[in-house]
């Protein structure tokens, strides 16, 4: 597979490490989250046959975490974003 890195262009997938579902970015707010929220965050994942937003780490490259939208059936990659940008757009800061 080729991953079109937003900063570096198309890179071979062997340069990356796969982590999984990009919902890991949505860490519950420790001030307000319930035990159930934490449980869901730590353990529950969707397993779609189709588009899937997932985290890849460019370990053999620039060490960016990326959010890759990949179709799990065809492996087609429709978007690649810096996880940092995604996190900020979801309101994450410090």
């Amino acid at each position: 597979m080729l991953i079109n890195h937003p900063l570096l262009g198309p890179r071979d997938s062997s340069e990356f490490i796969y982590l999984g579902d990009a919902t890991l970015i949505d860490r519950p707010d420790p001030e307000t989250a319930s035990a159930q929220d934490w449980h869901d965050y730590a353990y529950l994942r969707d397993n779609p046959a189709g588009p899937h937003r997932e985290l890849w780490f460019h370990e053999a490259g620039d060490r960016s975490w990326l959010v890759v939208t990949r179709n799990t059936v065809t492996h087609e990659i429709t978007s690649v974003e810096l996880a940092r940008d995604v996190a900020r757009s979801q309101g994450r800061s410090k």
């Binding site: 982590l19 996880a83 940092r84 900020r88 994450r92 800061s93």
Partner: peptide, 12 residues
């Protein structure tokens, strides 16, 4: 650590 920084606390 890069995950915690980039994905959870990107503005640190």
């Amino acid at each position: 650590l890069e995950f915690v920084h980039q994905c959870l606390f990107p503005d640190l």
